[in-house]
Design a protein around this nucleic acid. Sequence first.
DNA 1: CGAAAATTTGACATGACTCAACTGGAGTGG
DNA 2: CCACTCCAGTTGAGTCATGTCAAATTTTCG
Lengths: 194, 194
Amino acid sequence: MDIEPLLAHISHHIYLSKEEIAILSERVNYRNYLKGQFIVQQGDVCKHESFVVKGCLKTFHIDSEGQEHIIRFAIEDWWTADMGSFITRTPADYNVQCIENTEVIQFSYEALEELYTLIPQLDRFFRIIIQKAFVASEKRIIRNFSHPAKDRYVTFREQYPEIEQRVPQYMIASYLGITKEFLSKIRNELANSD
Amino acid sequence: MDIEPLLAHISHHIYLSKEEIAILSERVNYRNYLKGQFIVQQGDVCKHESFVVKGCLKTFHIDSEGQEHIIRFAIEDWWTADMGSFITRTPADYNVQCIENTEVIQFSYEALEELYTLIPQLDRFFRIIIQKAFVASEKRIIRNFSHPAKDRYVTFREQYPEIEQRVPQYMIASYLGITKEFLSKIRNELANSD
DNA sequence: CGAAAATTTGACATGACTCAACTGGAGTGG
DNA sequence: CCACTCCAGTTGAGTCATGTCAAATTTTCG
């Protein structure tokens, strides 16, 4: 119920005064979810930006064939939402679902818009956060084009060792854009070549 | 030499006073490039964010095998840079090259940092711009995973008809993550099925 | 312990790639 | 105004990475 982790995270990028912290505290919500629960469902308007205090989530899209495509994971200190839906107030393309019991601090659209005017520094904070996310996202596009699945898996393991421990293999396959069967074969190869 | 197009673009998202416009005008540079020239080269630190007044550019990465991968195009009213390099002041992963004679308005890193403090609204402006770019980038990851190349090409044509007219086919193939030969075959199929 | 979920394995299919040859315009210079 | 070259695009044969489907196995957990 304590928003300290959020404040610590924010203070890495901008300075907030006591008053600003108070203003912010009043406008965010702490919330618990159980494993399996959805924070956002495809088709609904995404109501919150969520900062993860504890737990693990996946953001995924279900395509017209019913296939699930994981676009990102989120663990402690990350943000998650369907940002497209959130900013345009239109139905979400993605689901955000808890893979573990999860605790988040949430900003509703109205609260956040108000906070942007009350604490202009927050524009800067989110600009910085989103810049980084954007850069990472474009890197991933290139990686997907220029490296075979095996390399992408190895890179993933190095880059997110913690996530690899916490999520089932078939979800990692989905994140990498391959089938669970093929990932299994890749792992087999890797094990035999070590 | 006139920064009016930039001001018009900015004013879609935030309001700037006469004074702020003056402050901004003093700190940006108008620059012309010829077809073929590079605004950023892989390995150099990206020195500017560039707003395109006129022309067309590609941003691409050369991988270890010497293959070129186009990550995005930019035409009038778009921004371009290697943002990762620009914000971290580290060597660029990407090249930005003019496909046509091009005119841009440039923000240097120092100028932009100063502008963020002089005109806090600019944090908001860039937050909004980058949010949109991020959403589009993640959509593209999903599209690449969930649709075959033919569908992606058709979508591309619908989404960016102007770009399709202005850039050679082999660059579109690279943007779509396929070879020029395969795109040629796709086009052949499409022509025969209409 | 038993059921459900996750992972593995194998046979076969296919989308996309490679490489090499060919076509067809758009300059350019004699 | 023709011949020459250069670059973009096309075509075809063969190959490879990854997908599909179905069954077997292992792990997880009530």
